[in-house]
Amino acid sequence: MLREILVLCFAAGVCALDTTAAWQLMLSQPLVSGTIAGFIVGSPETGVFVGVLLQLLWSGSMPLGSRPMPDAPVGTATGVWFAAALVETGGVSLSFSNLAGLLVALCVALAGRSTIVWERELNCRLMRRLRMRLSSGRNVNVELTQALSMTMAFFRGFLLCVLAVGVLSVLVPVLGGAGGVVGRDYKLVLLLVQGLGIGVLVSVFARGVRGRLPAFAGGVALALLIRNLAG
C-alpha cells in the first residue's frame, strides 16, 4: 500500500513537471495522468472515468502568460486514488466514489494552483540572484540554477500528492463505513458535470464560428448513422 502511494506520488511529480517545467508532451493532461494513476492503484477504469471528466472540464484551460492553471496532474492522480480507495471499501456506490474522486481532484487542483504561484516566485528569486552575480562580474552556473528549479518543480508535485493522500486517507474509512447512507444515486450530478465539460468544448470549438456549424452537424449525423447501423 505504501509502495503504491509512493509510486503514485512519484508519477504525479513527473506529470506535474510536464505541465510547464519540462517536455510538455501532455502527460499532464487529466486523461493521461488519470490513466497512469488508474494503472498504479490497480483500477484503470476508475482512472479513465475520472480522467475523462476532468479532461472535459479543463479542455479550455490554456497555459498562456502568467495565468496559473489548476494543478491538473496532481489533482487527477489524487482523485483517482481516492475514488479507487472508496470502491475498495465496498461500502459505497460506484457513482458516489466517482463523484467523490472528482471533487477531491478539483479541490487538490485548486490548492495546487497556489503552490504553482509560490514555485514561480521562487524561480524569480533564483533568477534575480543569478543576474545579480552576473552583473557584479562573478561566475554563474546556469545549469545548476536550472537543475534547482527542476527539482523544485518535481518535489512540489510529489509533496502535494503525498500531503493530499495523507490527509484524505483519514476520510476513506469514514465515507466507506457510511454504507447504505451514501449509496444513493449521484448520476444526475455526474451528468451535469459532463454537460458542463462538453460545454467547455463547445466554447472552444463552436462559439462565435458559424462556419463550423456544418462540421458539427456532420459529426452528429455520422454518429447517429453509426449508432443506427450498430443497432
Binding site: 472528482l102 478539483l106 458542463l196 465539460g197
Partner: peptide, 23 residues
C-alpha cells in the same frame, strides 16, 4: 447543459473548476 455552459459569460468560463466544484 452543454449549450448553456458553452455560451456562459467569459468570467464564468474561466472558472469552470469552481463551477464544477459547486455542482
Amino acid at each position: 447543459v452543454a449549450l448553456a455552459a458553452g455560451f456562459l459569460p467569459q468570467f464564468l468560463r474561466t472558472r469552470v473548476t469552481e463551477v464544477a466544484l459547486a455542482l
